[in-house]
Design a protein around this nucleic acid. Structure first.
Lengths: 336, 336
DNA sequence: GTGAAAGCGCTAACAG
DNA sequence: CTGTTAGCGCTTTCAC
């Protein structure tokens, strides 16, 4: 019961001494690498518990040239900083990392400012990186690739060597659009998509267009808007849409929320005057006055899957395969 | 121009050799500690640039027993995972850290599950911690304190030795409530606050009550609800509020959003039938159909201030003083 | 003002 | 199967 005194953190050497073994034997017992007698391992584990030993990760890091951290590239532009997707995604990443003794380290990017990323790479603070929102120019992946930093991209990447984890946005958006075209088909179906800077919006566009093709219809270009990345553009788009569309699909939750606010200002009500659906759901839309029909998928699962892939790569389990996750479509009042 | 070949990362030794100096001298030149001739330092810096040297942070860590990481304790309960405050706050933290060669490492907590935090502490992955949402039992701070991990708390803490960075919620909520009581005073002012688990909600309650006291009024307890932490409780509260209140103040943006959805279901319109204000603003409310009057402050600034304080503490600049940040009140249509 | 050498705590050959 | 010995790359006494 003298555990209260001598509170110095025990290290490999201490437990080796206590057992009359050498550091390396203890190290092997812990790592499970190399030959070791089962009984010895038992004794080591017991002792570890008794002395409450925890390895010093920094020393381990230096020796193994690994940090046991993965970087998470997150958009920090004020326009995106509040988007629920990234936060929820981070939840999944953190949880998955925790189950492998890894931790998630934040890397903020603003527009094309990759300073934080560059620093993290140069300071060797992470073993790998998850890119949560790839951009159209692939600059993030390019940087990562040139520095030989393993990475996984969430969403479609323009970069060739990327391992990708994504929701099937193309088919998802196609299905949602098809649904709209089937049931009580709108006369004039409009679309609003966010910045063309982000690859996900290209997938969404493709899905939308494919659904139209399937139906033998074609888009009314006057009411199909892409690259809506400012309130001004949105404003212009909405003023046309309210006149000429009877149903609008939005690229994501944030955009949809803005759209809904505009519609309300103009005295248009959903779904009576105009129906609305969204290609991404979040609490913004599920709790909206009129719950919004939307494509729904778990950002947390996406994050977890991305971590899982990255960790496999880092462990040499060469799983450089892409992962495509599912989705559901939730029909809510906004399109009834 | 032979920089392309020999792409091994240079280290202290290399630049020492190139200059005919010793590692220790170079180290001193970089750190600025100890005596060193100005000219020597110049030469070292030049060489560093030329060879594009970056110190190995892991080695530095081991030697200095520092990680150059700070942990950010973030709620990951599904109920909070989408709350904009934390994400925006993280933005500020990351930015501030980046400017000091530090990085932010995510620590998720769910309810009273402090497993991730415990692991991070035991694995010595961070030098200090920022707690973004202190709970009523002070368990996080207690753990941190017992492990002698420096930390800063965002929001009021029940723990004595905490350094606190906070918005002045008490006065903020008092001012907002006072405003409501002054201009076109409601007959029956209701309140809805979130979980009593979180200290911030206590501050808000205090502010609300103080405003009533100031006015010589007292609360109508039938329409003052605290501890609303589930849809069920909210539902019950709302059914009473719609009958008995003509103006409602909400604890935060998430709660307010839920309230607004309920009101809408019940056919009540804001502000005609009932006025609504919120003790915290976010994109949820500013872009709502009817923009909501609310207390507004910069989560990013809060995060930045917290990092800044923590970094000072870590640098021994013993700034264990609390920081209280300002706020504004934004009057919007919901209370007109 | 500068250099030599001893760590920081762990892992990984290489011997035995 | 286990012990010995070198590192990993930087910081930091302690001499000179």
């Amino acid at each position: 019961m003298n555990t209260k005194a001598n509170q110095k953190k025990p290290q490999l050497e201490d437990i080796a001494a206590a057992l009359g073994l050498s550091k390396s034997t203890v190290s092997r017992a812990i790592s499970g690498k190399g030959r070791i007698r089962a009984e010895t391992r038992e004794r080591v584990f017991e002792c570890i518990k008794e002395l409450n030993y925890r390895p010093n990760m920094i020393a381990k890091s230096l020796s193994e040239q690994k940090t046991y951290n993965i970087g998470v590239v997150l958009p920090m532009d004020s326009s995106e900083a509040e988007a629920p997707f990234f936060q929820t995604c981070l939840t999944g990443i953190a949880k998955q990392c925790a189950s492998s003794d890894y931790n998630a380290l934040i890397i903020g990017t603003e527009r094309d400012d990759l300073a934080q990323l560059t620093n993290v790479i140069e300071n060797r603070k992470v073993d790998g990186v998850i890119v949560t929102r790839p951009t159209a120019d692939g600059s993030i992946e390019q940087l990562l690739d040139s520095r030989e930093m393993p990475f996984v991209v969430i969403g479609r990447s323009v970069h060739e060597n990327s391992v990708v984890v994504d929701t099937d946005h193309i088919n998802g958006c196609r299905d949602l659009t098809s649904y709209l075209l089937m049931n009580n088909p709108p006369e004039r179906l409009g679309l609003i998509l966010g910045s063309t800077e982000y690859t996900v919006n290209k997938s969404r566009y493709t899905g939308f267009m494919t659904a139209l093709l399937d139906k033998g219809a074609h888009a009314n270009n006057r009411i199909v808007f892409t690259g809506i990345d400012s309130e001004l553009k949105l404003s212009k788009a909405v003023s046309i849409l309210t006149e000429e569309a009877d149903c609008i699909v939005c690229g994501d939750d944030m955009l949809c929320m803005s759209l809904l606010a505009r519609l309300s200002e103009l005295g248009k009500s959903v779904p009576q005057d105009i129906r609305v659906a969204s290609f991404y759901d979040s609490v913004f839309l599920s709790r909206y006055t009129t719950p919004i029909t939307s494509l729904i998928f778990s950002a947390a699962e996406v994050g977890a899957a991305a971590s899982s892939q990255l960790l496999k790569i880092l462990n040499g389990e060469a799983s450089d395969e892409n992962v495509m996750l599912g989705y559901e479509i939730l029909i809510r009042r906004s399109t009834m």
